[in-house]
Design a protein around this nucleic acid. Sequence first.
DNA 1: ATGGCAGCTACAACGATTGGAGGTTCAAGC
DNA 2: GCTTGAACCTCCAATCGTTGTAGCTGCCAT
Lengths: 172, 172
Amino acid sequence: MTRPYSIGDLARACDAKVQTIRHYEAIGLMPPAARTEGGQRRYSQAHLKRLKFIRHARELGFGLAQIRALLELADAPEQPCARADAIAREQLAEVESRIRRLEALRAELARMLRECRGGRVADCRVIEILADHELCRFHHAAEDERKEKERAAPPPVKARRRGRGRARVEGL
Amino acid sequence: MTRPYSIGDLARACDAKVQTIRHYEAIGLMPPAARTEGGQRRYSQAHLKRLKFIRHARELGFGLAQIRALLELADAPEQPCARADAIAREQLAEVESRIRRLEALRAELARMLRECRGGRVADCRVIEILADHELCRFHHAAEDERKEKERAAPPPVKARRRGRGRARVEGL
DNA sequence: ATGGCAGCTACAACGATTGGAGGTTCAAGC
DNA sequence: GCTTGAACCTCCAATCGTTGTAGCTGCCAT
């Protein structure tokens, strides 16, 4: 039986701030720790393992809700792991989508900078492109992505334009 | 003189929520709009242009603070545009860094999924890799990046370990 | 015993946006 | 001109994950 860890020990071991660990406990992601007579938290190996799991999943970009689900699964080792796979696949898709968007962004930023010859603001392509959406190539990719999402999960009727009511302002 | 726009008109034209526009006004990013007798906001072409600028810059990932700076520059067309370029370059670097991290993440997630043969949770590589940091390749890239940052801007002395005080728990 | 780091609780802030409650105004259509 | 209801108003709270602060108390080596 190893000596129990203080919250600071866990923080150092898992690259987390002390505050963050307390926060995980507050939201029920970490089980409550034992306490000393004076009220300080004392952690076991199991706690340490769990926190490492959480922090590692965070590094991989999982949200706390996803991690909660993964932890439940990890605690039921006889279950089939299809659900865990699904969560990971979901996360992978999200990451890939983010990469695509960022690459479009990178291209557009690079183009802005390439075209700017460093004169006055009045002629600056950076400012100019920001001011005028039509000069931008990025926008279209972003819009397409948005539309694609809507195809997959159409927004509630309430959110769509409802016929009557002032029409879209002319010339925008 | 065109008919003034309502806040909803602006929202539709700039792909922003009405709330968001009011928020921009509250934090001083948008100048206050004229009001009707009844207190509703009425916007000019200038407002429209400014909001488009803001929204476009947001799409490109600029933060509101950066946008504030860019707007100031846009309002001073005789200035040299070096500052605007610097902001854009900064943003480009940030985007590139994010892409690199996400690509490492993608690789790790893909590897997890590739290795998992879809059996029980107990044998699931997804869960296993999350639980055991040592099995993960991503971690090292992330640590290197962190260390690189620290080399560039070392944290205040206060944050570093200070010799005395309980030593790092053994075996972590 | 004492010094001082580390821990405690509780609350607020970050960044950017969104949602809701509860009430008022505008303008289209009759 | 009147009715109707979408769109507007303000104020406040929540989101997400983490960090910071204030004002304490505990732990442990010297």
